[in-house]
Write a protein that binds this DNA or RNA. Structure first.
Lengths: 222, 222
DNA sequence: CGTCATCTTGATTACGCTCAAGCTCCGTGG
DNA sequence: CCACGGAGCTTGAGCGTAATCAAGATGACG
């Protein structure tokens, strides 16, 4: 892996890929196996061995952690091109499930290690790890210090930015949003209604919205 | 800052260090510059260029992010042996400040890159990044889904576990705890009193406590 | 068109926040 | 050595935001 992550770490959705990371992605594609998962199917479970890493080809993934009494926290959502399943220890701390029907590229860690002569690959994985760390740190701020309204506004703003369009289809249900934001579905629903009432966003069906006032939305998201 | 921190916390959580990572640490030591920071002094600021990485030699560090209206979230606390300051992008998203007077080993990223022939070093930094990601994910669960009491219990339990002893000195003030846990100092204080009232912990001065009932504490921490 | 899951809305409750007062611990100087 | 002062911590009273409990509304799908 390389320490030039500053350059290499393409932010997740926008920046175009460098030639070298394209090559690395191609290599990943050749080394991995494609698998299909149905909506809500588990890709891996909490406490399972973490000897594989994964890349979303199509569809979307959520990672989540469930407490003994059923409370759930969603770690993140992953979309095509994203790597997930990296762990510091030998076991997964979060489980991963398909948000929708999806295709996942699966790679053995050991295979990656064997192909040690591929520094591009190591760089790619390191960059993905750093990028995920950064996203998780933003998530900390959201959970620890934002109000319900700010949480929901941040969530919609990020979806819209990632999508790069005003019209956004959300792949996740209200419960997934709630468990990502540390709220209940009722509160999420109320905040969405409130944002719609303020003409900041407009919903057409509960899974599709349009941003009507970007400034107001990002001001709320802080 | 007590010596026992320095000895104890060289490797933060799990495995004792391998010979190779010891060599890598020695290399780090030789490449870096030692700097002293006074209590509350800033090591780097939010939005500053991230062209250095850091290792705690003695003392303790907190990383934090402040919102425009002053709300603050602490990312993590770092102790001797811990690396910090790694970023996905070119700028720091969190600032870092000295919790106590401390000595920090500072390394230029570019110097690390130049010493590209040191795969041990890259492995060490990658492992530190993964470990930090894991900690941050646990922090997510705490912030998103735990009650005030569970948050405080988790915090004390982790401090005690890290210290490996029943008697624990806390290097941080109540405000730091509160901003780590997503609470107010009043709530932190109330929960500490409550835990003490239940004979689960016992404080001798507000910065030192003893765990009296490990089982109860870890049950509350979930 | 009917059924069931998902989502929204309403009423009430409770957990943690705010505001306010007192206490403890230390360092400092008389 | 003790009095003083101030920062940090604790405790109390009341409040507000989001949770809970409970109906309805919407929408997807057979």
């Amino acid at each position: 892996m390389s320490l030039s992550y500053a350059i290499e770490a393409r932010s997740r959705y926008e920046a175009p890929r460098s030639a070298s990371s394209d090559a690395a992605v191609d290599l990943l594609d050749r080394m991995g196996v494609r698998m299909a998962f149905a909506k809500d199917e588990e890709v891996y479970g909490q406490d399972e061995d973490a000897d594989l890493i994964y890349r979303v080809v199509s569809g979307a993934i959520r990672t989540s952690r469930v407490m003994s009494d059923g409370r759930r926290q969603i770690g993140d959502f992953y979309y095509p091109g994203d790597l997930f399943g990296l762990e510091a220890g030998p076991e997964h701390r979060f489980s991963a499930e398909a948000l929708s029907d999806c295709v996942i590229l699966v790679l053995k860690r050991s295979a990656l290690k064997a192909a040690g002569a591929a520094p591009e690959l190591e760089r790619l994985i390191f960059a993905a790890t750093l990028s995920e760390l950064q996203r998780t740190q933003e998530h900390l701020l959201l959970l620890g210090r934002k109000t319900a309204c700010e949480k929901v506004a941040s969530f919609l703003a990020e979806l819209a930015e990632r999508r790069g369009s005003d019209m956004v289809d959300m792949p996740m249900c209200r419960q997934d949003m709630a468990d990502y934001l540390g709220l209940t579905i009722e509160t999420v629903s109320r905040m969405l209604s409130q944002l719609q009432g303020s003409s900041i966003v407009e919903f057409s069906g509960c899974r599709q919205f349009r941003v009507r006032n970007h400034d107001a939305l990002s001001r709320l998201a802080d």
